[in-house]
Each structure stands twice: as C-alpha cells, then as structure tokens.
Write a protein that binds this DNA or RNA. Structure first.
Length: 255
DNA sequence: ATGACGCGTCATACGCGA
C-alpha cells in the first residue's frame, strides 16, 4: 500500500499540480494539509474523477486537512480531544483496510513566548495523549502530516538559524520525541540516519536553490504498522515544478 | 545591477506561514 503526505499550501492554488501528480504516482492513501478551503468549496469532483473518496476537515483561508483513499474508508474523527475551544482544522482520522490513518497539521507556534507557542505545546500534549491511548489497541496506526517539528540537527541545513524558532525549540523536540519513545517509528529517518533529507524550503531567500530546507513532514508508524514498512522516500523533485508548494510529498510503502 | 515569497481574503494591504 503506497501512502503519502503532502502539505499543498492551498488546494486551489495547487489543483493542476495535484491532479497531474496523482495520475502519475497513484497513491492509495493521500494525507493533505493546508488545503485552506471550507468543505463546501473543496474541488471534490477533480479528485473523485481520479477514483478517490475524500474525507475533509476544511477551514476557510487557513489550515484544513484531508484524507483521500482509493476505496471507501471509515471516517472516525475530526477533532483532537482535550480542548473544546479549539476551532482550527488540523486533525482528521480514518480507518482504511484495517489501518488507522491520522492526518495532522500541527501548529507552527512562532514566535516563542506568545499564545501561538503555548497553543502548539498544548496541541502536542493532546496529540501525545491521543497517540498513547491509541497504542493500547495494538492497531496499525499511521500518524502523518506536517508536524512543524525539526527533530534533529541534521534535519535542517543551518541549526544555528533555528535556535530561537518554534520548529526547533528543545521543549517542542522533546514532545515529538515522546512519540518516538512510545514506540512510534519515524518512517523516513529509520532508513537513513546520516543524510540531511528535507521536506520544506521557504519561498524566500533562494532557500530551494541553496537547499536551505527543513524536515518537518513526517510519517510515524506504530510498532505493528512499522512491521509492515517496506520503503520510504521524499519526492524532492516536486519542489522544482512551476508554482510549487513550499513542501514536497513524503511517501511510505506498507505491506 | 540583476530581482526581490506565496496564498487567501467581502483584496488592491495584511495575516499567516516556517
């Protein structure tokens, strides 16, 4: 089963790229982030014409996540438990072929020392609780999306540039590591622990040209899902297209 | 010197992203 996560930075702005890319690559499960659109305006038919079932948690202007599946899935939730006041569309979960897919768009959190940073901390605590509880089921769980976390020094080109950033803050990385310590496997890092492999390059300052990127889009696998991992890769070439997202797709092949 | 970030919005400046 070929699965992928992709922060598209606006589904309307990326629609032509997305359709061509899906035709070429034919993933079975697609997790999208930052669709930046409300459900009623989502270009549903474009994806249905390719044979996808669409499960949406959209929002006007900002955020918004979706999961597309080749066969029908079961939508299980759109709300990350723990905060009834949270109205940002950053979470969607479906069951598909006995696997549980959790698509997230984790808050950015910048700048540090603000409500945004506190919101990120709180959101990560809720995610960690949720992923801890989920493990007890021994299901095959795939948590994938834009985590807005640079896990290690070699997940960015210039660590010194990120020292004060919410993507690399020690307390943020610690909360990400909590998931790894629970037994979730970083599907990309496990296959290559040495090289820098980035998933996002800023539009500004020639970041792509200079390969000044960060690895912040992740696929985490519960132990039983990790047993099924056959391959993983980052589709860097998409960053070279016309009108690219600032992120690129991250893939995993599961039995 | 060149060209200088992109998306969405009750736009034509601004919030937001990373």
């Amino acid at each position: 089963m070929k699965i992928v996560t992709f922060n598209v930075n606006g589904v309307r702005a990326r629609i032509d790229t997305l359709i061509g890319w899906l035709k070429n690559t034919n993933p079975e499960v697609v997790a999208l982030q930052e669709i930046k659109i409300q459900d009623t305006d989502f270009p549903l038919s474009s994806f249905e014409n390719l044979g996808y079932h669409c499960y949406l948690n959209g929002q006007k202007s900002f955020n918004g996540v979706a999961i597309l599946t080749k066969e029908k899935a079961k939508l299980s939730r759109k709300i990350l438990p723990g905060n009834n006041e949270d109205e940002q569309a950053r979470f969607i979960e479906v069951y598909y072929k006995k696997k549980r897919f959790i698509c997230i768009y984790l808050p950015n959190g910048n700048p540090k020392g603000t409500e945004k940073f506190l919101y990120k901390l709180e959101w990560m605590d809720r995610l960690n609780d949720y992923c801890y509880q989920a493990l007890k089921s021994e299901e095959e769980i795939i948590v994938l999306g834009d985590f807005n976390v640079i896990p290690q020094y070699n997940d960015c080109k210039y660590p010194a540039q990120w020292e004060e950033d919410a993507l690399f803050a020690p307390e943020i990385r610690a909360k990400f590591n909590y998931l790894l310590n629970l037994g979730y496997l970083d599907a990309i890092r496990i296959l290559d622990d040495a090289n820098s492999m980035f998933t996002q390059w800023d539009y500004r300052d020639q970041a792509w040209k200079e390969n000044n990127g960060v690895r912040i889009d992740h696929i985490l696998l519960s132990p039983s899902a990790a047993d099924k991992l056959e391959d993983s890769w980052i589709e860097t070439s998409l960053r070279d297209r016309n009108k690219p997202s600032d992120h690129v797709p991250v893939w995993a092949l599961l039995k």
